[in-house]
Design a protein around this nucleic acid. Structure first.
Lengths: 139, 139
DNA sequence: TATTGTTATACTCTATAACTATA
DNA sequence: TATAGTTATAGAGTATAACAATA
């Protein structure tokens, strides 16, 4: 069962990999920058550089450089934490949010194609199975 | 509905991202090498370097270098195509297959944890919905 | 002194261009 | 001449180490 879910996930990923990484390159956004942008776009509150480093597993210098590029492009806003001036608070701008959604939409389109190609009863059963899970976990 | 599936996929990915890329680094395998290894491990027949370049969207030199590293580590076998000696045929070795499965298992473990944390009726419904799809598509 | 983040440096990876071998 | 792949080179990205600023 978890194997079946794994197969679906892998299929959805690989079917859009080429287009997705092509889009990244066209946008001029590195994979590390995407990870930062994604975490910031999903985050409820502001994150520090160290927080991003922890969540991504990337080194602090790498994060610093990646974020610096995002700030210069206006995708992320970086301000001093007034309570600890060593620390910087990061949050996505409207532009950053839109960039992230544009990139995510490539993956989303692959999922949509997959769902459209299901048999009606397959689609209904999958939808009915997924929805309560999404609701309960607040994904 | 396709949105729900997209949310699940994203959740499964991000929940294992840190550990997955950490494993890659520990194994000394680059992301491009992973793409090559994955395509070769799933492929029914042998692939050429140009074929890998097409499928990944990476440049031919990048593929050439990535595969060269895999060949030197014994993960991939590279032979001349007897029908066109310009072309090389690639296939994973037993070692390469095992390396790929070891890496994929990090993602698989995340999926397994997710499934274990479902309510029994959620798990049953999802399993019943997924299985016929897997069967029909021969994933 | 400890911590947060930046800068310096060396290494890896990639793309474009130039090249080799085969067709 | 065209195609498959390799080698050369320059640029981007990363990690470790050294540093600056704040706690």
């Amino acid at each position: 069962m978890s194997q079946d879910l794994g197969l679906i996930v892998r299929h959805l990923l690989w079917s859009t990999n080429r287009e997705f990484f092509g889009s990244l390159q066209e946008e001029g956004i590195s994979f590390s920058q995407l990870k930062c942008l994604g975490l910031l776009a999903e985050a409820d509150s502001e994150l520090s550089l160290g927080g991003l480093s922890d969540e991504t597993g990337l080194s602090l210098p790498a994060i610093s450089r990646a974020v610096d590029g995002l700030v210069q492009r206006g995708e992320v806003k970086r301000t001093e934490d007034p309570r600890d001036r060593r620390s910087k608070l990061l949050r996505v701008t409207a532009r950053g949010q839109s960039t992230y959604e544009r990139l995510a939409s490539v993956r989303a389109a692959g999922v949509r194609r997959f769902v459209e190609d299901l048999e009606p009863q397959e689609r209904d059963a999958l939808g009915s199975a997924l929805h309560p899970i999404i609701e309960r976990l607040s994904l």
